[in-house]
Amino acid sequence: MRSTTPQGNCDVIQREPGQKIRIASCSLAGCFGCHMSMLDIDELVVEVVHHLEYCRGPLNDVRELRDVDVGVVEGALCNEDNVKVLEQFRANCDLLVAVGACAINGGLPAMRNHFGLTACLKEAYLDAEGVVNPEIPRDAELPRLLNRVRPIQEVVKVDYFLPGCPPPAAAFTELFTALIEGREPAFDEDMVRFD
């Protein structure tokens, strides 16, 4: 059993007055549904911009990652690039938040663990109906696939978990509000849903 310290490190973020909390996000093997839910915080966004600075992620297409307070990670690990990005996030973020079913238990991408990598590639690129010029892509630019899809906490330590597919906007609201108020987030029952 791995030792994780979930839901209990919010006080590590120390801010000078007027200094914003720096947030970064990424979607690994995910569908961006969690990001959509994160954007669904409605009018809180007006408050959030005064306190939080979104410094890196798919929403602003910035790749640079340093001195980040909170990293929000959506999606499972399905290729080597996912692992690299995740490790960069862990190294540069004081707190790491796993959001969504894929990040927490592999979710939909983990369904391929049933079949094995070779069988999946064969089915997708060689044998499937309607495939033209059957060939498994091998371009050096393409990240190599992992044999098995994995949740992120099997590779790095994760501080907070927001389960759900996606996590409800209320969970993000509570997370951001807690960060702004400098307290531990308290997720009500209706914010913790696996579907």
């Binding site: 059993m1 791995r2 979930p6 663990n113 949740p151 099997e154 913790v192 696996f194």
Partner: peptide
């Protein structure tokens, strides 16, 4: 899992 406040899994998934 909801009742026992399970947010994540401390064990590696076997799949």
């Amino acid at each position: 899992a909801y009742h026992l406040d399970m947010h994540e899994n401390s064990f590696n998934h076997r799949y």
